[in-house]
Design a protein around this nucleic acid. Structure first.
Length: 512
RNA sequence: GGUGGUGUAGCUCAGCUGGUUAGAGCACGGCACUCAUAAUGCCGGGGUCGGCGGUUCAAGUCCGCCCACCACUACCA
């Protein structure tokens, strides 16, 4: 057995000034499925998620709440820790930027960059909106009654403050070469094009500190400054592995295999982050994958419209695994997609309950009734099953692996359901309930083949629907230790006693 | 404005380097079956492949123009 390759997967750290919404759940879920898949394949995985807790907005919100910032973030970050349980995320670590280890890592990285001459003190000035915690260009502003407003509607004021800068402008060519040498670094390709076009248009130095607020990591040697946004936030990915201690136990997981991000923060992950790392002589991550956004019943989601989707409410209504399944099945990962109750109901009823759930139930019921609940011996002899196995079941694992490698979650699931459809065709053609009288030996073979098919489906679907597939594997009599990908090669023993089957999925009765 | 992309059956989309009657899932209609969560299977209707022009023996598939929509266009998680 070869040594398992360490796999490091991350979500962004989520800003605690917001409540968890479907976007957070979506990013985390996709990463979770990948993590579970790699573990199922016997690889060693570190899956990290966490919260971003610094910044002026948090400082202000804490002040408004009459709490000190640490107590405030202790409270509001809880919602994100709760999300991991509610979505059944299998994260190995959860990092908060307010932890001492993160302060140490940020300061160490800063110092290293400073020593290498990548940081200098300058001044930042521009039109600033306190509410947005952001600067705006003059052409973005509108003026009413002598007051200038940002596109967000927030009033802006001209501010000038000293700031440390990172020499990002010097990294353009090196970044472009890095993108050329690593064509898969930014995915999907459309995001890569955007990033490269952006870099080609020329980079300016990046302001990486602020003096206008205190809630952040102090800049080493200059207590008047705290680190600003990305210098702080991005560093979390190496903090969690023990940086700056490159002898730390987890450090072998670096560089990250995938930073999963929403498309809004691609640039920071694909430009700033590799630049910081290369400047510090650290290897950049292998891949940044940007997924798309959800709309809600065709409408763009926004807080002002009030159509934000609460993942916990969804799970409450439809069940966790159907939601997990739907989010990754409905839309090509990387593209935008629409969430609708009709679509979710359709997937849940049609694919999960009718196609897969019903197949499992009919097969297991037949075995229960006609085989005294004991698993028939391995068959695979008849001509029809040769097609089922040869064209669908045997290639399924590698088909999924290939698609998941490319983050094609929806195609990976589609491959499963092509096989499920074929299995439904097989049972109808063979009609084991009729074979009982005409050819009982063949009936046993057919039922065994179908049981084998279900075992394949259940095993491969575990990363997507961990709880439900555990139930199915229980019903199939598959022992806990025989649920990995490699265990599929070992047939279950003839005569294995199977428990009484029960429906796996509950259908939505009155589709909207 | 610039850059990149999309426009194929009612809906969501596949269609690699141009080549026999343009495909899938869902939805819809008919038939079969009854082991199963009134589930499943089979058959079928339905498309001027955004528009115009061009290259070619041959174009959804290449070129030009036009129309519509989307993304990105700097320091906001």
């Amino acid at each position: 057995m070869k040594a398992p390759m360490p796999v490091y997967l991350t979500t962004p750290i989520y800003y605690v000034n917001d409540k968890p919404h479907i976007g957070h759940a979506y990013t985390s879920l996709a990463t979770d499925v990948l993590a579970r898949w790699h573990r199922l394949a016997g690889e060693e995985v570190y899956f990290l998620t966490g919260t971003d807790e610094h910044g002026q907005k948090v400082e202000k919100a804490a002040q408004d709440a009459g709490q000190d910032p640490q107590a405030f973030t202790d409270r509001v970050s809880q919602a994100f820790r709760d999300l991991t349980g509610a979505m059944n995320l299998s994260n190995d670590g959860f990092i908060r930027t307010t932890e001492p280890r993160h302060r140490a890592a940020c300061q160490a990285l800063w110092q290293r960059l400073a020593e290498k001459g990548e940081i200098y003190l300058g001044a930042y000035e521009g039109w600033y909106a306190v509410r947005d915690e952001a600067f705006y260009g003059p052409d973005e502003l509108t003026e009413r009654d002598g007051v200038k407003y940002a596109p967000s509607g927030a009033p802006v004021e001209w501010v000038r403050e000293p700031s440390y800068f990172f020499r990002l402008s010097a990294w353009g060519d090196k970044l472009l070469k890095f993108y050329e040498d690593n064509p898969d670094f930014i995915q999907p390709a459309t995001r890569r094009n955007e990033v490269m076009a952006f870099v080609k248009s020329g980079l300016t130095d990046l302001s990486i500190s602020r003096t206008s607020f205190r809630w952040g990591v102090p800049v080493p040697g200059d207590d008047a400054h705290v680190m600003y946004v990305w210098m702080d936030a991005l560093t979390n990915y190496i903090t969690a592995l023990g940086y700056p201690d490159e002898k730390a136990e987890l450090w072998r997981f670096w560089p990250a295999d995938v930073h999963m991000v929403g498309k809004d923060i691609v640039r920071f992950h694909a430009i700033y982050w590799p630049a910081f790392l290369m400047a510090a002589d650290l290897p950049p991550p292998r891949r940044v994958f940007a997924h798309g956004w959800w709309t809600n019943e065709g409408q763009k989601i926004s807080k002002s419209v009030g159509n934000v989707i609460d993942p916990l409410a969804l799970v409450q209504e439809f069940g966790l695994d159907p939601v997990r399944y739907f989010l990754l099945r409905e839309v090509p990962f990387g593209q935008d997609g629409d969430f609708s109750r009709a679509a979710l109901t359709n997937r849940l009823n049609g694919e999960l309950a009718d196609a897969l759930g019903n197949l499992a139930n009919r097969v297991l019921s037949l075995i229960q009734r006609n085989c005294e609940g004991k698993l028939p011996g391995v068959a695979r002899s008849d001509a029809d099953s040769a097609g089922l196995f040869g064209a669908f079941l045997d290639p399924l694992e590698s088909r999924m692996a290939q698609r998941l490698e490319k983050m094609e979650f929806h195609l990976a699931l589609e491959a499963i359901f092509e096989a499920v459809r074929e299995a439904n065709g097989y049972i109808t053609r063979e009609a084991p309930w009729a074979l009982k009288k005409t050819d009982p030996v063949r009936m046993l073979a057919v039922l065994r083949n179908l049981h084998d098919a279900l075992r394949v489906f259940a095993t491969l679907l575990q990363p997507f629907m961990p709880d439900t597939m555990a139930r199915l594997l229980d019903q199939l009599g598959v022992p806990e230790e025989a649920r990995s990908l490699s265990s599929l090669a070992t047939p279950l023993p003839e005569g294995l006693a199977l428990p009484t089957p029960a429906p796996l999925f509950q259908k939505i009765q009155n589709p909207a």
